[in-house]
Every structure is written in C-alpha cells, then in structure tokens.
Amino acid sequence: MKPEDIKRSENKVYCKPELLNDTPMHYCPGCSHGVVHKLVSEVIKEMGAEHIAIGVAPVGCAVFAYSYIDIDWIEAAHGRAPAVATGAKRLNPSRLVFTYQGDGDLAAIGTAETIHAANRGENIAIIFINNAIYGMTGGQMAPTTLEGQVTATTPYGRRVDLNGYPLKISNLLAQLPGTCYVTRQAVHTPASVRKAKAAIRKAFENSLAGHGTSVVEIVSTCNSGWKMSPAKSNEWMVEHMFPEYPLGDLKNDTER
C-alpha cells in the first residue's frame, strides 16, 4: 500500500490539534504540560472558540505557553494571571478568558489574586498544573510539595514544622461561593486524559455561560524536578500525590 492510500480522512485515527503549532516545545520529555497543552488546543478548536479565546500565561514552566497554541495571549507577571484575566474578561465579557498556572504561581505568590478572583466569581477558567515542585527554576519547594518530599530547597525533605503543610488550594477555592466548578484531574493514562479534557471543556463552557470561576487542577509529574524517569514519575504520582490530592470533582455547581 502506498502512503497516499493510507493518508485518507476515513483512515485518520489521530492528528495533532490544529491550534498546536510546530514550535518545538521546551518541556522535558514525559512532562504533563505537553498533554494539557494538547487538550486545551483541542477543546478550544472543538468549541469553535479560537477567535474569542484569550489565554493568560504564568511565570513558571508554562511561561511560553503562548509560543505553542495559536490563540491570543497575555503573559502575566508571576502569580498575577487571575488579576490580568479579570481585567481582560471584565472589559471583554464575550471572550473566553482562561489562565494557565503552576502551583508556585497560583498557590504561593499569587494566592491573593487567585482567591479574590474566585471569590468575585470572575467568569474565567483556571487551568492549574500541580506538580508539587518549582520546575523552571530548578526543583525548589512548592506550596504543594508533599511532607518529606526532597527538593532543592528541602534537601532533607519538607518539614511541616519549618515549611508548613502541602496547600490544598483547590479545596479552599471550592469553599468560595464564586466558584462554580472545581475539579482535580490527571493525565497519566488514556482514560484520565479523556476525563481531564472533558473537565477543561466544562470549565471553558462555564466561563462563556457566566456561571462563575472554574478551576481544573491537573495533578502532574515533574520527572526532571523529581529526578525520576517519566514512567517512574507516574508511579510515584499515583502512590504519593493522589492520596494527598485525590482526583475527582470538589464542586460542580453550574446550574445556579
């Protein structure tokens, strides 16, 4: 069979999302970011929202998210994405405005902006990558770092008497009347990828429908920061991260 005979639409079982461009990603092999970028691209395209989407990129590993997904983007200062998104959405209510943030950005330096945007019920979606570590700066402790977890700044493991406890910020956000949908997902298996995609779609739809703030936490791996192979990282995540950050909906209240 010639390649031309194979390359027919009826034979197509998978393709790169149209909105994901050809720029080589800087993410480490095995990193969850690539999968989540793909899901975001697919969902925006499937919703037909590529002409109304405004993404707000964080400071952290996803700082270059705007280089990969062909929509309009604003690059925010560290932690300020929810405030930047608030400004963009309030002045452009018809737009699909979402932030894409890591744990340090969202749950450490940007805690105030996160909680207050959610508390106002800003009609934005927040994609929150929780890999329990600062990836970009070289593997330092994050607010979500587990007790005992070794990082560059907790070389003998996180001690809660010194560094406090892993911050379950999604649980906090779920308590706020301003949030309509708070869910915790992962992308380590095909099944979990499908569920995560559905969650992102729901969050984006909520944003356009004006239901309030939606938060999709993706419990993720950082094999470079964790100093493990990608496969081992997935195992470690299931074993150690999931008990602390169990998957599932924390709040689903979109019929208000």
Binding site: I54, G87, E113
Partner: peptide, 14 residues
C-alpha cells in the same frame, strides 16, 4: 494595589 495594576495590565492588553 498589586491586583489593581495587573487588572489594568490585562485590560490595557486588550
């Protein structure tokens, strides 16, 4: 004020 100026940043970007 940190949030204010970043809301300005977000709004001005549009």
């Amino acid at each position: 004020e940190v949030a204010s100026i970043n809301m300005v940043y977000g709004g001005a970007s549009t």
